[in-house]
Amino acid sequence: MRWVVAALLVLLLLGWLQGLAFNQALDWPTIGQYFLNYDVLAGLGRTLLITAVSIVVAVVLGALLATMRLSDNPVLRGLAWLYVWFFRSIPLLVLLVLTFNLSLLWPTIDIGIPYGPVFVSVNTQELINPMVAAIVTFSLQQAAYTSEVLRASIQSVPAGQREAAVALGMTRTRTMMKIVFPQAFRVALPPIANDTINLLKSTSLVAFIAVPDLMYSVQQIYSSNFRIVPLLIVATLWYMIVVSILSVGQYFIERALRSSPSRVGRRTIEADPVLPDSATPDDIAAERTADAGTTPKENRA
């Protein structure tokens, strides 16, 4: 029965693929013609740039927000909460268009002390071009989500790790940087990789504010030659290729992290091969009993 179902499904898939491949509207020659088109590739470059900058800013800002959220200081905690609440509440597209039109709200951006002197004043319209608006929007919103991922990861590091570091005379900053973050990032990596893939695809929204990314570039082309489906397939294929590369990268990074055994039981325990020359008879006896007695227990752990 299982084989019958499987065969039927494979048959359906083959039939659909064949129909797709020979569909005249798909127009494979046009797809081939535009696949490596200069504008399409330049658009792909911008898509990658927005994604890369945004995820880096999001991780750094997110780590800062997560630390604030977990701090003892109620003001810092409150501000971090407010940030996450604000940026998670606004739909990405709304935020994007809003950022792009920031100059309508604030014609100039002033850097200075509130109610005090102004050091720098920039014309908002000149500062926020579509590309800047896109990067700012995606960075700020992604930081809100990444900070939540990092907060949970930091909390997943056992309290004993922090206590041991503090007991060795490490300052709080050092404890976070050297002991907590390295362990938290291992936990955070799969969800962050997932978010990166999501972010990459979400960047297609920048077409709304006329950033010539991958999506906007193919739109420009099909609005003049009307080959809508082939050009959308070009964009689809490129998104699929980049996502596949990211997924493979994620797989290898996760595998590398897994093989450095940060968690109990991921590697089997090898038996003590040679005892050190300097070991005393007591040490040897203790070692023997220890290793003889515990191997099964450790494998279980």
């Binding site: 056992p158 004993g160 790790q161 206590e163 041991a164 570091a165 503090v166 007991a167 060795l168 005379g169 490490m170 300052t171 709080r172 002991i179 390295p182 362990q183 291992r186 450095s260 940060s262 968690r263």
Partner: peptide, 24 residues
């Protein structure tokens, strides 16, 4: 201050029930 407190802790070794070795 936190820093001075950390300085004092350098002189005091602590061994925990659950070992707490840095797992990474």
């Amino acid at each position: 201050s936190g820093r001075a407190e950390a300085r004092q802790r350098q002189d005091i070794g602590m061994v925990f029930q659950s070992f707490n070795l840095f797992s990474h």
